[in-house]
Design a protein around this nucleic acid. Structure first.
Lengths: 180, 180
DNA sequence: ATTGATGCTTAATTTCATTCGGTCAGTATG
DNA sequence: CATACTGACCGAATGAAATTAAGCATCAAT
């Protein structure tokens, strides 16, 4: 039996995405409402085959879930901001993580660089943003915050399956090759 | 006829989300695969009524689209970074906007604060991130960049329909009330 | 060569989306 | 007030799509 490098085979098995899988992902990331017949037609497969692939992609975790992407403005959350949080000591305290329960908070990352934590926040108003900042400063360990309020958004999309294969050589940018 | 404040009625008509709409959005943001019968059951509506609501939410733009949310690791993009870009002059040049074509670039915002542009980038490796930075520095008008590489992500989700109604009064945090 | 596994196909079945009247409450209008 | 209109809902019916089933080709390993 060929049981080499089994250590990461669990992850590897789940990540073996052939070109067909990538094509399917590319379609579904853009529009998850296509019928399996239509999806199959676009990638060159029958409906049940496409269905089988999608089922596998879901089970493996490559597709986390199908979601409705809503217009923040429509739900009255027109203000977007990124907040850098400096903490004293280790940032990931339960008290700080608790803000993740606010529906305003969309992302929480720990980052390398001069900030400990980075938050993406979408609120109804500057008043609401102030409320969130007040809550942040109330949290033990929070030393300082720097807010970057978004003036306008030119691009915002979920993770894409595509990867740029060749980057331009510095000082001579030419069209980049893209896969999927 | 009651034609008061018609100026913003175009937007207003599209944003009149009653509590039922919010409930529907809350369900669909989490799982867009539920049947209309199931959706109706969860919000207290018949299948056709739920269907009608969703159709209206789509048409009004409150629901932008249904999308598959994929695991970045599964497609080999394990590196996430936020890049602040300082530009000389006005940031939104066609040359700078062109990087939006890279599938690595997920977000492009102009922000208030000490950075002109803010990018959210997901790449396969530090090598790929370097390639993107190289391309950035090749772009006319780009003065400097600061990269914040994400060490770990604790929360990452699409826009939520919910809004926090009452923020804790400073220096006395109590459980926040949340609608939907 | 034979077996087993994988991945596909077409065809059949079942579930669900969508359409179609018809009812009810609220609201303007004669 | 009564009437007509509008908007939102429901149950039933129809049509489309998801899902299952059965059979076939390819490939790897015995």
């Amino acid at each position: 039996m060929k049981e080499t490098d089994d250590i990461r085979s669990l992850a590897a098995a789940a990540q073996q995405l052939d070109p067909m899988d990538r094509k399917i992902l590319a379609v579904l990331v853009e529009d998850a409402t296509v019928s399996y017949a239509e999806l199959g037609k676009r990638v060159g497969l029958s409906a049940p085959a496409a269905h089988e692939r999608v089922k596998r992609l879901k089970k493996s975790g490559a597709i986390r879930r199908m979601a409705a992407l809503i217009d923040p403005g429509a739900v009255g959350k027109g203000l977007l901001a990124f907040i850098h949080v400096d903490t004293s000591g280790w940032g990931k305290t339960p008290a700080l993580m608790a803000i993740a329960e606010c529906p305003e908070v969309e992302e929480v990352h720990s980052v390398a660089g001069d900030a400990c934590m980075l938050l993406k926040v979408r609120a109804a108003s500057t008043r609401a943003l102030e409320g969130l900042l007040a809550r942040l400063y109330d949290t033990p360990g929070v030393k300082a915050t720097r807010s970057y309020v978004v003036l306008s958004t030119y691009l915002e999309r979920p993770p894409q399956p595509g990867v740029t294969l060749s980057w331009p050589v510095p000082k001579a940018a030419r069209p980049a090759e893209i896969v999927q």
